[in-house]
Nucleic acid binder design. Structure first.
Lengths: 145, 145
DNA sequence: AGAATTTAATTGCTATGATAATTATTGCTA
DNA sequence: TAGCAATAATTATCATAGCAATTAAATTCT
């Protein structure tokens, strides 16, 4: 491995680990019969308990694109977990909110999801987290321009 | 933010950063007119200069699934950068190798890709990398069972 | 007010990720 | 050796990511 490729290796390890976390969580979601994907869950969590939010706002807060949000909200609505309401002030916007079923599902899932998410961080301590966050934030800012 | 959700936050930050690295690299690939995606590049790199590898081997080394490899190799073949050869010993396998064009493309891309990959890691030092790798590897192993 | 610009959401397209199912081939074993 | 299990690749399906283009509505600028 040539010296100049170490940065490719770091990027690869980062992507690999990120995918493993996602895959692990998704498998647990299936095992628990949650009936939603990890990404759908992330959107639901931000609407709990009774937030109204436009899709643009949801896209920004979940770091997804607006086309992706359209599709995720489509699926949540099809499952009866969320609903779109046309904004009174601005008819281009749809305010998304959870249905009663959606609220109950979040409440049912929340503690289990916390447990699932915790598994990745075993054997790691406060200092590890802090430094880890520092590195990730630095990378993030390095590529922000 | 409830205390138990900090692990979700860490996972989110990790995924967000991973996606930003990928997106940055892909945009640079387009800007340089490489004509291949980051994932296609990763496969090509492992075949350079004249390796023969089955798709299963490529899948494992790139941490992708075999369906994904099938499609990536399809695309590389369609672009004239790689070729499949039926394995002499085992006719289920196809040995994949770069064409002459593919070899030249890797040689052309390599130094530029190294530069692109380097950008993410600005302002970070040896110790940061080591600790970062330690954390990523720990996560990876935590979820390996 | 009317025209141009901006914004929110949607749609279309390509690529990737994950899983399940299928096909072809190989290896094992009773 | 006949049958069965394991393996390699492919195909199909669904979900997500990213980009470009479109539509509708709101805002801005003369």
């Amino acid at each position: 491995m040539p010296q100049q490729d170490i940065y490719s290796e770091y990027s690869f390890l980062l992507e690999k680990t990120s995918r493993r976390i996602k895959r692990y969580a998704q498998k647990q979601f299936v095992a628990f019969n949650f009936g939603v994907t990890v990404d759908q869950w992330m959107v639901m969590k931000h609407l709990y308990p009774s937030s109204q939010m436009s899709q643009s706002e949801l896209a920004e807060i979940t770091f997804k694109g607006t086309p992706t949000l359209t599709r995720i909200v489509d699926l949540l609505c099809a499952k009866g977990l969320a609903e779109r309401m046309v904004d009174g002030q601005d008819r281009r916007k749809s305010q998304v909110h959870l249905t009663e079923t959606g609220i109950l599902k979040v409440e049912n899932m929340q503690p289990k999801v916390s447990q699932i998410r915790k598994a990745a961080w075993n054997k790691l301590g406060e200092q590890d987290f802090e430094h880890f966050q520092y590195v990730l934030n630095t990378i993030y800012q390095n590529l922000s321009v």
